[in-house]
Simulated assay, not measured.
Amino acid sequence: MTADPTALRTPSSPPAPPRRRADARPAAGTRWRGATAAAAFAAVLVGGWQAMAVSLDSLLVPGVPEIAAHVGELAVTPGFYTDLGATLQRVALGFALAFAIGAAVGIAMGRSRLARRFFEPAVLIGLTVPGLVWALLCVIWFGVDLINPVSAIALSAAPALSLSVYQGTRAMDPQLQEMAYVYRFPFRYRLRYVWLPSLAPALFAGARLGLSLAWKVVVLVEIFGMSSGVGYQINNEFAAQDVAGVLAWTVMFALVMAVLEYGVLQGLENRAARWRKAVAV
């Protein structure tokens, strides 16, 4: 008697449950926890400053209500937005120039040993020279022209951006590059589907570092050699010995930086990293 072949089969395992698609709830929960942590840090910082102001009882350490009053005055003053717009324009132009130079130099260093040896001394010197030196030199060289802050920002931020992009280029998967070469991908496809996704973490890390340097340098340039901008107004408050005014301008400047970080950079980074999250789910 012939055995039923179906009887010899081992019972097949139940089909695996379908993978759950990443929905908006975990992302929303993560964002909520992140916002709560940031708010907790801000509360600790404000509470610690107020406690220090009360304990010292000094005109040099104004309390939170006095600083908040100055912040409220700035928020309804049209001149604040004029000076802020001037500073943002300088930062945007200088950072764009630094990003273009840093990306080109970093990729060249990562792809070519000769380029790495050629640019490496310049990157090391750029990382060593303080931003204050670049600010002073550009004030001496260019005066009050727009090229002054743009050049100072580019000279300060480009080396750090170059190093970040270089490290990201060196960390790229060589098999992806070999695949693109074997299949003869056009340059635009290699740039869009191989290079940019692989370099995105390094580019965003470099952008954060470059922006932080740009903010610091532009304030120095505006203090020493400009007649407008946030740094210029901070210098005026310092000359008037108004500590609360200095801190109010600093707080408003920090708020703008936070908006750019959380509202722009993180949004772009999450959008660029969607394919990584989709693969991980």
Rank of each mutant, 00 (worst) to 15 (best):
M1H: 13
P5E: 09
T6G: 11
T6C: 06
A7T: 14
L8A: 15
R9E: 12
P14L: 13
P15R: 10
P15S: 12
A16S: 12
P18M: 08
R21C: 07
A22M: 11
A24W: 03
G29R: 11
G29H: 11
T30K: 11
G34S: 14
A35G: 06
T36W: 12
A40T: 10
F41R: 12
A42L: 15
V46R: 05
G48N: 08
G48Q: 04
Q50M: 05
V54D: 14
S55Y: 08
S58Y: 06
P62Q: 03
P65Y: 09
V71E: 07
G72S: 11
G72C: 10
A75N: 09
T77N: 15
P78A: 11
P78T: 07
P78C: 13
G79Q: 14
G79R: 12
T82N: 07
T82A: 15
L84M: 15
L88T: 05
L88I: 14
R90Q: 09
R90F: 00
V91K: 01
L93K: 04
L93E: 11
F95N: 01
A96R: 09
F99I: 10
A100Y: 08
A100W: 09
A100V: 13
A104R: 05
V105Y: 01
V105N: 00
G106E: 03
A108F: 06
A108Y: 03
R111P: 02
R113K: 15
R113Q: 12
F118L: 10
F119P: 00
A122N: 09
A122I: 08
V123W: 02
T128M: 14
V129H: 01
P130D: 04
P130A: 05
V133W: 03
A135L: 03
L137I: 11
G143S: 12
V144M: 09
L146D: 11
I147N: 05
P149F: 05
P149E: 07
A154Y: 00
A157W: 01
A157Y: 04
L163H: 02
V165N: 02
G168Q: 00
G168E: 04
T169R: 10
A171C: 08
A171D: 08
A171T: 04
Q175L: 15
Q175G: 06
A180T: 06
R188H: 13
L191I: 11
Y193T: 05
L196D: 07
S198P: 02
A200W: 01
P201W: 04
G206S: 04
G206A: 02
L209D: 00
L209W: 02
L211A: 04
L211Q: 03
L213V: 06
A214Q: 02
A214M: 00
W215P: 00
K216H: 04
V217F: 05
V219R: 04
L220P: 03
V221E: 03
V221K: 00
F224N: 00
S227G: 13
S228F: 07
G229P: 00
V230S: 02
V230E: 03
V230F: 02
I234R: 08
E237D: 14
F238R: 13
F238S: 09
F238E: 10
A239L: 08
A244S: 07
A244E: 15
A244H: 11
A244Q: 13
A244P: 06
G245T: 02
V246M: 15
L247P: 01
M252I: 08
A254V: 10
A258S: 14
V259A: 15
E261P: 03
Y262P: 01
L268T: 07
E269T: 09
E269P: 03
R271V: 13
R274C: 07
K277E: 14
K277L: 15
V279E: 06
V279D: 08
V281D: 08
